[in-house]
């Protein structure tokens, strides 16, 4: 049942608005996601209750719901609702990350001299430096990361609770989509400057290791102060440049997985 909030007095607002079961479900899921994202670090997954979601909707949409509107109609209870919201968060995670990285890399391709191996190597290093910084930025944002962390944990610890099988599926689907996109990005970027994977290592292994590194750095940054920026003489003519430690580690993985392609010829 959907009842307009009594605080509002206009006749339009007083009119009873009916949402279909599906519309109500969508609204509550989007609200749950919004609450998790907006309340960030302090909220935790446990702060997501029906009451909290109803209040949010009443405040932002001027609609009022009760437990009777949803329990037994849409979800069997709070646990199932939470699991569905977490699945949504898992689905959306990292979608903005790849765009941010791609955007940050564009200028480095303009500067590269593809006929010169040293220039190609320097470009790879700059791509690591800039790309890693761009990738870590959205992950370092607690609002984006903490719900995801909650998703992982809820999955790891609550596999037996209602709805968690759907959550597990959503996590695997989300990670798999994200991994596939990254595999394409890394492969294409390296091919563009004439590098290839060192046999027998593969793109999917590389993506998994880089993902692990990023997850670990974000987790560390949420409990201790990150280490200072690192100054390395990697700029033009040995000029000093600032590196995030994550970028140095990312470069290490890149050099372990990629090598100059001996058969590559620069495009004319």
């Amino acid at each position: 049942m959907v009842t307009p909030a009594t605080k509002k007095t206009t006749s339009t607002r007083q009119r009873r608005e009916r949402l279909s079961r599906e519309e109500l479900r969508e609204l509550l899921l989007a609200t749950g996601e919004e609450i998790l994202r907006n309340e960030g670090m302090a909220a935790g997954v446990g702060s997501l209750t029906f009451k909290r979601a109803f209040e949010w909707i009443e405040e932002h949409r001027d609609l009022r719901f009760t437990n009777a509107s949803v329990i037994g109609r849409i979800w069997s209870g709070l646990d199932e609702y939470r699991a569905d919201v977490l699945a949504l968060v898992a689905d959306d995670f990292a979608s903005g990350e790849i765009d941010a990285v791609a955007e940050s890399l564009a200028p480095y391709f303009e500067a590269v001299d593809l006929t010169d191996p040293a220039s190609r190597l320097a470009t790879i290093r700059q791509l690591c430096r800039a790309g890693a910084a761009a990738a870590l930025l959205p992950l370092d944002d607690g609002d984006a990361w903490v719900p995801w962390l909650g998703v992982l944990l809820a999955h790891c610890f609550d596999g037996q609770q209602p709805g968690m099988d759907r959550l597990g599926e959503a996590i695997r689907r989300s990670v798999s989509i994200s991994n596939s996109s990254w595999e394409v990005v890394y492969t294409e970027v390296c091919q563009a400057v004439g590098w290839r994977f060192r046999p027998p290592l593969t793109a999917s292994q590389f993506v998994r290791l880089v993902g692990a590194l990023a997850d670990g750095f974000v987790r560390a940054n949420s409990v201790v102060e990150p280490g200072p920026m690192i100054t390395l003489a990697t700029g033009e003519d040995g000029a000093n440049e600032e590196w995030h430690n994550f970028a140095v580690a990312f470069e290490a993985l890149t050099f372990a997985f990629f090598e100059p392609d001996p058969d590559w010829t620069p495009p004319v």
Binding site: L152, I171, R208, G211, L213, G216, F217, R219, G227
Partner: peptide
């Protein structure tokens, strides 16, 4: 720091994937 971050992240990914 890099080593610890990598090993922890690796464990996490391993459990999911």
């Amino acid at each position: 720091r890099a080593q610890m971050a990598f090993l922890e992240g690796f464990q996490l990914r391993q459990a999911i994937e």
